[in-house]
Amino acid sequence: MSETRLQVTRTIEAPAERVFALLSDPREHVAIDGSGLLQGSDSDRVTGVGQVFAMRMFRDDLGPWRTFNTVTDFEPDRRIGWAPDLDPDCELAPKLAGVTVGGHYYAYELEEHDGVTDVTQTYDWSGVADPNFAALCPFVGTAEMTGTLDRLAGAVGSA
């Protein structure tokens, strides 16, 4: 870990295929979110790099907003990741006028062995260039990320 990168790992008692199926469906992310930021998505299942899915978000100090997330990594049953960017037409956009957002990403790496899967979640904001946006980071901490992996484990059948 570094000052601009957080990572947590958990062994989940489920095959990688089941874990990946949940992670690749944005509509399921609210159920596993340990941060409380995610409010929902109507986007279809992620199927490859370059795809964009939308998420509705909320944070007390920012209010509601929407992100467009570009899939940066996609290897079925092994790795999925995306880089969020602010929807320029959402409620938060006028408040951040003049601020360059983006430069952060989320990723999950899966390594299956003997029917269980080690899941590593990474949140990296090292690419954030605007100091005004950097002041809002990190959007999640290790406790929230651990909560996400705990919820993921529960959702795929591992307590």
Score class of each variant (00 low, 15 high):
1 M>C: 11
2 S>E: 04
2 S>T: 13
4 T>C: 12
4 T>Q: 13
5 R>F: 05
7 Q>L: 05
8 V>L: 13
8 V>N: 06
13 E>C: 04
17 E>R: 14
17 E>I: 03
19 V>F: 08
19 V>T: 09
21 A>P: 10
25 D>E: 15
28 E>D: 14
31 A>N: 10
32 I>G: 08
34 G>M: 01
37 L>Q: 04
41 S>A: 09
41 S>F: 02
42 D>R: 14
43 S>P: 05
44 D>M: 14
48 G>N: 05
48 G>M: 05
48 G>D: 04
53 F>P: 01
53 F>G: 01
55 M>I: 06
60 D>F: 07
62 L>R: 04
62 L>Q: 05
64 P>K: 10
66 R>Q: 14
71 V>W: 11
73 D>N: 11
75 E>S: 13
77 D>F: 01
77 D>T: 08
78 R>H: 10
81 G>R: 07
83 A>N: 11
85 D>V: 03
86 L>A: 08
88 P>I: 02
89 D>F: 03
91 E>N: 02
93 A>H: 00
94 P>R: 10
96 L>P: 07
98 G>S: 07
102 G>T: 12
103 G>H: 00
105 Y>Q: 00
107 A>T: 09
108 Y>K: 08
109 E>V: 11
110 L>M: 12
111 E>Y: 03
111 E>G: 07
112 E>G: 04
113 H>N: 10
114 D>M: 11
115 G>K: 07
115 G>P: 03
120 T>R: 14
122 T>K: 03
123 Y>W: 00
125 W>A: 02
130 D>L: 09
133 F>L: 02
134 A>Y: 12
136 L>A: 02
138 P>E: 07
139 F>I: 05
142 T>Q: 04
144 E>W: 06
145 M>L: 15
146 T>Y: 02
147 G>M: 03
149 L>Y: 02
151 R>H: 08
153 A>W: 12
155 A>I: 00
157 G>L: 05
158 S>C: 09
158 S>D: 13
